[in-house]
């Protein structure tokens, strides 16, 4: 019963504290830290991704909720976001940080984080089949949901175009 009294809604104060903490922990690793709607975006360079992930994990972000990849065709990059949060630390569990890297769209390779966050293992497989991103060092990289023929088309990239029907009927 008493435990419940600690409850409070996520305030801007708490977010700011975490942002400061992240900045301090990660130091020169980060390119930028900014507050998004519902998450804190931490941009890091690709070659220091694993380092940053280890540091975040040590901070208490113990699992990844979502591995989100967005295809920016015009910029020629895939934006890969590891949306991590915490289960064991109640303060951090209210906050979601997104460890963001940009990788080259034409040569989509990046190190796998599945040995740091086990929870990302299946989602990396999913991203691999939908975007064709190779996660180097992934223990079991094969399509998860799709059959290989379809996975070869990389259906979630913007090259794969699906059209809605028109609203008129002839």
């Amino acid at each position: 019963m008493v435990e419940g009294l600690r409850f409070m809604k996520l305030s801007e104060e708490m977010v700011r504290v975490v942002i400061e903490k992240v900045k301090k922990e990660l130091g020169d690793l980060v390119k930028s830290v900014e507050e998004g709607k519902g998450y804190i975006s931490i941009k890091v360079p690709l070659n220091r991704l694993r380092e940053a992930a280890v540091k975040l994990k040590n901070m208490g972000f113990d699992h990844v909720k979502s591995l989100t990849v967005t295809d920016y065709k015009k910029k020629g990059v895939f934006e890969v976001m590891y949306m991590a949060s915490s289960y064991l630390d109640e303060e951090l569990s209210r906050i979601i940080v997104s460890l963001t890297v940009e990788i080259d769209r034409n040569n989509p390779r990046m190190p796998s984080l599945s040995d740091i966050w086990t929870s990302v293992e299946f989602q990396e497989r999913e991203v691999y089949e939908f975007f064709g991103i190779h996660f180097e060092g992934h223990p079991d990289l094969r399509p998860l949901l799709l059959v290989p023929d379809i996975a070869d088309l990389k259906p979630l990239t913007k090259d794969f175009i699906v059209k809605e029907e028109p609203i008129f009927k002839s």
Binding site: I167, F168, K169, S170
Partner: peptide, 14 residues
Amino acid sequence: CARICPAAAMKMIK
């Protein structure tokens, strides 16, 4: 109605 139909079931005919 045709514009909002999520299943493309409603269509306009001329």
